[in-house]
Design a protein around this nucleic acid. Structure first.
Length: 232
DNA sequence: GTTGAGCGTT
């Protein structure tokens, strides 16, 4: 992912999260990092992406180590034109798991966990909530069918071309090569994207017995519906 | 090649 840590969120303790809205769908964490790091110590840059397509969702989180530096970044970068759009920078209000946040700093962990201990009402799981939100997004945006894959390859192609030419690497960016994590991450990201053949459906079996189909459907009923119903 | 309010990953 697009953060410094190996996997998952890095140390969130005593960091200050900024929400960066209105960024381009093509803007990456690598683009944002040099910009924000000028105003303080950036601990993490994370751009949420669509789980299925990997597309940027158009906003980002930048975490600073110190509050005053984060505040400075808000003042300096809010309204700044980045990649042709005026970005909006503000302190995050919610944590990764809906913790309470003040000034981007986590002040209370998982308010929902506390609710659960108090009442037995079953809450929708994390995944369901995510799917609901995704659905809302999709209905609002234009329908993106299957060419999203091609779009992604295009983007990766551009990405590699630009990272190979040394002229596009800003001196400021070079300054952070000591950490070296972003460069590695970018490379591994490209690799995993290019090797991805994301959605592979089960091949439709033609000459199986009904019993076989029954078992097959039991296994795949959450992903495939129609073939099962027709052949039982 | 497209979208545009919003609050986050292993």
């Amino acid at each position: 992912m697009s953060h410094f840590g190996r996997s998952g969120p890095p140390d969130i303790r005593d960091t200050y999260s900024l929400l960066v809205l209105n960024i381009t769908f093509r803007t990456t964490a690598d683009d944002l990092f040099p910009l924000f790091d000028k105003y303080g110590e950036v601990v993490d840059v994370f751009i949420p992406r669509d789980r299925r397509t990997g597309d940027s969702r158009g906003f980002a989180f930048v975490r600073y180590k110190y509050a005053d530096e984060a505040q400075k970044a808000v003042e300096k970068l809010d309204g700044r034109n980045v990649d042709g759009r005026e970005i909006r920078v503000q302190f995050a209000k919610y944590g990764p798991n809906a913790e309470r946040i003040q000034k981007g700093r986590i002040v209370e962990e998982e308010p929902r966990a506390r609710d659960r201990s108090r009442s037995h009402s079953p809450r929708p799981r994390y995944r369901d909530g995510y799917r609901d939100r995704e659905y809302k997004r999709r209905s609002r945006s234009r329908s993106r069918g299957r060419h999203e894959q091609d779009r992604y390859h295009d983007r990766e192609r551009d990405y590699r071309r630009s990272s190979r030419s040394p002229s596009v690497v800003s001196p400021d960016y070079r300054r952070h090569s000591g950490r070296g994590k972003y460069d590695d991450e970018r490379r591994s990201r490209s690799r995993s994207y290019s090797s991805g053949s994301p959605i592979r459906r089960s091949p439709s079996p033609k000459r199986s017995s009904s019993l076989h189909m029954f078992h097959l459907c039991k296994e795949t009923q959450d992903t495939v519906h129609d073939p099962c119903l027709q052949s039982i």
